[in-house]
């Protein structure tokens, strides 16, 4: 053991410099040329940063499209899911409450029509997206509050839907809401 101790210590010190210092510095240097310079991609409205493209935000106001329930209340100083089991009775009560709340804010909607993701918490608590159907179901409410044409908002949703032959279709809630604010 003694024989290997000194080489081990020396090797450790050098590798700390290579792997723990030089490597991250290199990546940070290269990332400087990426969008957002490696600090995260922000979105600005009228020159003011209103959020990060990939980090979901809380929208409680009925005039905005709302994202998914969050176990961390969309505070990105932390992250995490509810970790509730599918069979947990308290959890199912919470889901029921979310369904009731949603129906109260969206009169005329049937419980059966609500997409599951709007009443279940995301894994990160910061999910920036919803599915196109989760956006569609909110259109009538938003049109009524903003006195806008339903068709115009549906088109907005369609324009903001990311489709790909790989993976699910999605709509970025923050971008959609910014576009909604710009709609006159």
């Amino acid at each position: 053991m003694k024989k290997y101790l000194l080489p081990s210590i020396k090797l450790t010190l050098i590798l700390i410099l290579v792997l723990g210092v030089a490597y991250p510095l290199l990546i940070a240097g290269v990332a400087h040329f990426a969008i957002g310079q490696g600090k995260g991609r922000t979105i600005s409205v009228n020159g003011k940063v209103v959020g990060y493209e990939n980090v979901g935000q809380k929208f409680t106001d009925d005039k905005y499209f709302q994202g998914r329930p969050s176990a961390v209340d969309y505070n990105a100083a932390g992250s995490g899911g509810s970790n509730k089991a599918a069979s947990n009775p308290d959890y199912l009560k919470t889901v029921q409450e979310r369904i009731d709340t949603f129906m109260a804010h969206n009169p005329g909607t049937l419980a059966a029509d609500i997409p599951a993701e709007l009443v279940t918490a995301s894994g990160s608590g910061l999910d920036p997206d919803i599915s196109p159907s989760a956006a569609d179901i909110q259109v009538i409410r938003i049109a009524a509050i903003r006195h806008l044409d339903v068709a115009a908002i549906r088109k907005l949703v369609a324009d903001h839907t990311d489709k790909s032959w790989l993976g699910p279709d999605k709509v970025n809630v923050l971008k959609l809401n910014i576009a909604l604010d710009a709609l006159k």
Partner: peptide, 9 residues
């Protein structure tokens, strides 16, 4: 859909 704890993207 079992979306609890999952991400839309």
């Amino acid at each position: 859909t079992a979306m609890e704890g999952k991400e839309v993207r």
